[in-house]
Simulated scan of single mutants.
Amino acid sequence: MKQRIAHIALVVKDYDEAIAFYTQKLDFVLLEDTRLNEEKRWVLVAPPGAGESSLLLAKAANEEQRKSIGNQSGGRVFLFLFTDDFWRDYNKMVNRKIKFLRPPKEEEYGKVAVFEDLYGNKWDLLEPSQVNKGVLSK
């Protein structure tokens, strides 16, 4: 049996502002934007070169969902953006006014810095160390 995680739902305030952030600030690719009904769209974005999974941008439909915007993981790092060139992406993100919560640090597993998206969800920008490079290509 083969299984994989295809999409991760990310609750957002507004489809268009979320699409703009991910495509213009992080250079993600808009894979799909299909209107399902008057209020709901099926919106998928992914980093360039991503093949296995993508983010499903899901507009909050009620007050309970709106409360989770920006805090889907209880304040922990929620998503991990792997890169093949940490400094290229870090500098580009700083120039694009992405807010970093923790500065770059060299760890045993690689170069890492914590940033937040437009709603405050925490992300790791991570370039795996040479020992862990195979993780990036999987």
Rank of each mutant, 00 (worst) to 15 (best):
H7R: 04
I8K: 04
V12S: 00
V12E: 04
K13C: 07
D14R: 04
E17W: 14
I19M: 04
I19A: 02
L26Y: 00
L26T: 00
D27Q: 07
D27W: 08
F28L: 02
L30F: 12
L30A: 02
T34H: 12
T34C: 09
R35S: 15
R35F: 15
N37G: 03
N37W: 09
E38H: 08
W42E: 11
L44R: 05
A46H: 12
P47N: 07
P47K: 04
P48N: 03
G51Y: 09
S54V: 06
L57P: 01
L57S: 02
A58P: 00
K59M: 15
A61E: 13
E63G: 02
R66V: 04
S68M: 15
I69K: 05
I69C: 09
Q72C: 12
S73Y: 14
G74Y: 03
V77Q: 06
V77N: 06
F80R: 11
F80N: 15
L81A: 02
L81I: 01
F82Y: 15
D84V: 01
F86I: 08
R88E: 11
Y90P: 00
N91I: 02
K92L: 08
V94S: 00
N95R: 00
K99T: 07
F100E: 04
R102C: 11
P103M: 10
P103Y: 11
